[in-house]
């Protein structure tokens, strides 16, 4: 398997308060990893460490081959409630900003880049509001736009932080369908609290609660969650093809 990122014994914290301790995780090329865990357990911090937004206290964060030029090859969809939705910016410009990088910020954007934005707008089916200010969008529309910004650069790794909050069921299904499609081209790291839904789409699960337990399958039982020190509730959804509650399961590895 082609490795993209190799995290070894990583410890991260803010102002000497440790949030993640001794975490190890390998992200391979076609991975679709669901990250679950309680609030304050360090899910977002793990993403931020990978994105270079927080400096680790100790440990290794190794970017392999195709991610050498790391940040421009990672697409990022942050938690949506962090945005100022009244900021005067159009949907088109938000998606365009996903193409910004060290090289291009001086000269601005070329026609090629604008064409690429239009292509993404077409793919996501958001032509109707492509030139609206973001303040006029609904929660689901907003998420589509930020997904567009995250994937417009065609990254090797896509990182999503709770894309399923503030959206309706229809969008949620669409989103996961889209992610499945994208997963053929890029590795995906998805943070969610809806373990029930994500388990039918992700290929493996990482439980993060100060420490990280890697579970190399998408099916996980409440007992296993408990043994991973991951106190979260499993919500079962009747319509979802796989159910999370399987009685028997291969051994889970502690990474």
């Amino acid at each position: 398997m082609d490795k993209l990122i190799d995290i070894k014994n990583l410890t991260v914290g803010y102002n000497s308060k440790i949030v993640l301790e001794n975490v190890s995780l390998t992200i391979n090329k076609n991975d679709f990893i669901g990250i679950i865990g309680p609030n304050g357990g360090g899910k977002t911090t793990l993403l931020k460490a990978i994105l270079g937004l927080v400096e680790p206290i100790s440990g290794e964060l190794c970017f392999c081959d195709e991610l050498k030029n790391r940040r421009s090859n990672i697409g990022y969809l942050p938690q949506v409630n962090k945005f100022d939705s009244r900021f005067p910016v159009s949907v088109f410009d938000v998606i365009l900003s996903g193409l910004a990088g060290r090289k291009s910020w001086k000269q601005g954007f070329m026609k090629k880049e604008k064409d690429r934005v239009n292509e993404i707008i077409g793919q996501l089916g958001i032509e109707n509001y492509a030139h609206k200010p973001i303040g006029e969008l609904s929660g689901g529309q907003m998420q589509r736009v930020f997904l567009g910004r995250a994937i417009v650069s065609n990254p090797k790794l896509l990182i999503l932080d709770e894309p399923d909050t503030y959206v309706d069921n229809q969008f949620e299904n669409e989103l996961y369908q889209k992610l499945k499609e994208l997963n053929e081209r890029m590795a995906i790291l998805l943070v969610s609290h809806d373990v029930g839904t994500i388990s039918s789409y992700v290929k493996s699960i990482a439980c993060v609660n100060g420490e990280l337990y890697y579970h190399p399958s998408n099916m996980i039982t409440p007992e296993q969650l408990a043994s991973y020190n991951c106190p979260i509730q499993i919500i079962t959804h009747g319509s979802v093809p796989h159910t999370v509650l399987k009685t028997h399961h291969p051994h889970a590895h502690k990474h």
Binding site: L51, L53, P78, F83, S97, W105, R149
Partner: peptide, 22 residues
């Protein structure tokens, strides 16, 4: 000269950081 960059930083500073912008 830096209109787009300034707007990007103003709108979402964290995302701008992940794009390696100054």
């Amino acid at each position: 000269l830096f209109f787009k960059l300034i707007m990007m930083i103003a709108f979402d500073e964290e995302f701008a950081r992940t794009r390696n912008l100054p």
